[in-house]
Amino acid sequence: MNINQFPKRNYTDHQTPIEYLERLSKHLGGPNIYMKRDDLLGLTAGGNKTRKLEYLMADALQQGADTVITCGAVQSNHCRLTLSAAIKEGLKCVLVLEERVPNSYNPEASGNNFLYKLLGVDDIIVVPGGSDMQGEMEKVADSLRQKGNKPYIIPGGGSNEIGSTGYVSCALEILEQLEEMNLSIDYMVAASGSGGTHSGLLTGLHGANANIPVLGISVNKKKQEQEQKIYNHTLKTAKHVGANVDFPREKVIVLDDYVGPGYSLETEGMREAVQLAARKEGILLDPVYTGKTMAGLIDLVRKDYFEKNDNVLFVHTGGAPALYAYTDSF
C-alpha cells in the first residue's frame, strides 16, 4: 500500500489532534471516549471532505479542469468545502443541490447555504429528491463543454476511490498518533453516509494490519444496503491504493438505529448529543452527521455495548456550519 504515489494538494499543514473527552466520558460512566478532530481540517470551517479534496482537486488540476461540478443536499458540507477548494485553486464551481426533503431549499437560509453565496459560487442548480445526481451533473458538464470549459465532476461526498484515499491516509495518521500517545483503541466510531470516510478508514486499517473495529453509524440508509455499499467501495479503494483486496465482509459494521425519520431530519438523540458535546466539552457537532453519530455512540454506551475501560475513538467529521440552519431545534 503506497498512497504517496498519488498527486495531492495540501489544505492542512498539521495533523488533527486526538483529544480525550474526559467530562463526557465521566458523564456517561465510561468507556474512555477520545475524538479525532477532523472538524479542524483546513478550508472553510473544516470537515472530513477536506482530506478527500486534497486528492480529488489534484486529479482535476492534472486533467486541466477549469471548473468543478459536485452535488449534495441543500446544506451540504461537501459542497461548501468543494467550493472552498475550487477558490483556492482558482477554478470555477457549480453546485447541484438535491432537495431530499421536499421544499427544504431556501435560498435565504443560513448555514452552508449562506456560505455558498458568501464564497461566490458560480451557479447553484436545485433538483428534486431522488434525482439521478450523476446524470444531472453530466448535463451541467455537457453545457459547460459547449461553452469551451473543461469541467471535472466530483461525486457526492467526494466518495470515490480517489477521494477515499484521503481517509486511507487518515487511518495511517491515527495509527501514528496512537503509537506516539502509547494508546490502544478498542473501537472507532464514524458517520457512514456517502461512504468515502468509512471505507477509507477500513482500507487504511486493514492495509496496516490494525485490528480496530470501525462502527459506522448510518445517517440515511438501512444496515444491509449501506454495508454492501461500504464493502464494494472498500474493495475499490483497496485496489486503488494497492492494499490487500482480500477484505473480510464481516469487518463492515453499520448500525442504522439512529437515522430517525430520514436523512437530515431531527431526532431527540441527535439534539441531546449536540447539547452534551457542547456543554461538556465545548465542541460543536452538526445535526445531520456527527450529531446522529454521537447519539449512536451515547446509546451504545448506555446499552453496555462497550466495556467500562474500553478506549473508543470518535471521528469528528465536521459540519458545524449546518447548525445555524437548525437554530429552532435547540
Score class of each variant (00 low, 15 high):
residue 192 S to D: 06
residue 208 A to V: 02
residue 222 K to F: 12
residue 272 E to L: 15
residue 241 V to D: 01
residue 184 S to I: 08
residue 251 K to H: 09
residue 288 V to D: 02
residue 181 M to P: 05
residue 209 N to D: 10
residue 262 G to K: 08
residue 215 L to D: 04
residue 206 H to R: 03
residue 251 K to D: 03
residue 201 L to K: 06
residue 212 I to L: 09
residue 253 I to H: 04
residue 224 Q to T: 14
residue 201 L to S: 09
residue 279 R to D: 14
residue 202 L to W: 07
residue 212 I to K: 10
residue 241 V to T: 02
residue 195 G to W: 08
residue 185 I to W: 14
residue 279 R to G: 06
residue 264 S to W: 06
residue 283 I to A: 12
residue 260 G to Q: 05
residue 272 E to W: 11
residue 246 D to R: 01
residue 269 G to W: 14
residue 266 E to H: 07
residue 213 P to I: 08
residue 196 G to V: 02
residue 237 T to G: 00
residue 233 H to E: 12
residue 181 M to L: 15
residue 267 T to C: 09
residue 188 M to V: 10
residue 265 L to M: 14
residue 212 I to F: 09
residue 216 G to L: 03
residue 230 I to L: 11
residue 249 R to T: 00
residue 210 A to Q: 06
residue 241 V to A: 01
residue 282 G to R: 11
residue 224 Q to H: 14
residue 234 T to W: 06
residue 290 T to R: 11
residue 246 D to A: 06
residue 189 V to Q: 12
residue 177 Q to H: 13
residue 236 K to M: 01
residue 220 N to Q: 12
residue 235 L to K: 14
residue 208 A to G: 04
residue 227 E to G: 03
residue 269 G to I: 07
residue 264 S to R: 05
residue 248 P to A: 02
residue 288 V to H: 08
residue 196 G to I: 03
residue 185 I to A: 12
residue 212 I to G: 04
residue 271 R to S: 12
residue 271 R to F: 09
residue 255 L to M: 09
residue 274 V to G: 14
residue 216 G to P: 05
residue 236 K to L: 01
residue 240 H to G: 00
residue 176 E to I: 04
residue 242 G to L: 02
residue 176 E to V: 07
residue 177 Q to T: 13
residue 223 K to W: 09
residue 259 V to L: 03
residue 190 A to F: 07
residue 200 G to Y: 08
residue 258 Y to S: 02
residue 290 T to Q: 11
residue 183 L to E: 12
residue 272 E to N: 15
residue 265 L to D: 00
residue 276 L to V: 11
residue 286 D to L: 08
residue 281 E to I: 12
residue 210 A to N: 07
residue 256 D to P: 04
residue 283 I to E: 12
residue 273 A to Q: 14
residue 282 G to F: 14
residue 246 D to P: 00
residue 261 P to L: 03
residue 194 S to M: 05
residue 248 P to F: 04
residue 244 N to P: 02
residue 234 T to M: 06
residue 285 L to C: 10
residue 285 L to Y: 11
residue 242 G to W: 08
residue 208 A to C: 06
residue 243 A to S: 13
residue 285 L to H: 13
residue 262 G to M: 08
residue 230 I to K: 10
residue 264 S to Y: 05
residue 218 S to H: 09
residue 240 H to Y: 15
residue 189 V to F: 11
residue 259 V to W: 04
residue 284 L to E: 07
residue 234 T to N: 03
residue 177 Q to P: 13
residue 207 G to K: 02
residue 213 P to W: 09
residue 237 T to M: 01
residue 209 N to P: 01
residue 275 Q to E: 14
residue 226 Q to W: 08
residue 231 Y to V: 00
residue 234 T to P: 03
residue 241 V to E: 00
residue 175 L to N: 06
residue 277 A to L: 15
residue 277 A to R: 11
residue 279 R to A: 06
residue 269 G to Q: 13
residue 240 H to S: 00
